[in-house]
């Protein structure tokens, strides 16, 4: 099977349940048309975010078209930025963190990505939610 050409989506929440639930909603919209990974909780399974786990999620959702990350509260954003910086250089510029609400942003971004849109368009669609 050829690699999925669409932009991938990564959902990063402090809670594994929130991340999984948001991913379920994305799958209901786009099925398997978009590479998708969700990650939540700290290394001990409590609430929090984990840089190594975020890096692994980016790998799972990797697409040559890039990856859009949706985050919830502060630490998820800071840890996602850290994870992006620790990725190989040639991948870094193809990963964006969207300034958008995590659930709505993930669904909107994935829907846009499923039509084959470029990373910048996927991001813009998710971020429009902030100005709506």
């Amino acid at each position: 099977m050829p690699a999925n050409p669409n932009v991938g989506i990564v959902i990063v929440s402090h809670s594994a349940k929130v991340a999984e639930g948001a991913a379920d909603m994305v799958r209901q919209m786009v099925g398997d048309n978009v590479p998708l990974a969700s990650v939540g909780g700290n290394a001990e399974g409590g609430l929090g975010t984990d840089v190594a786990a975020i890096m692994a999620a980016i790998d799972r959702a990797w697409s040559e078209a890039g990856v859009a990350i949706l985050v919830d509260l502060g630490g998820a954003e800071t840890n996602s930025e850290m994870a992006v910086e620790m990725m190989p250089e040639e991948r870094r510029e193809r990963i964006v963190i969207c300034n958008a609400p995590i659930v709505e942003g993930a669904v909107m971004a994935a829907t846009e990505a499923s039509g084959g849109s470029a990373l910048a368009v996927v991001r813009a669609t998710a971020e429009e939610l902030m100005s709506a």
Partner: peptide, 15 residues
Amino acid sequence: LVMKVGGASGPLYGT
């Protein structure tokens, strides 16, 4: 610290 702290303080103290 970046890898183990978990909260926002991990990347901040790590940095």
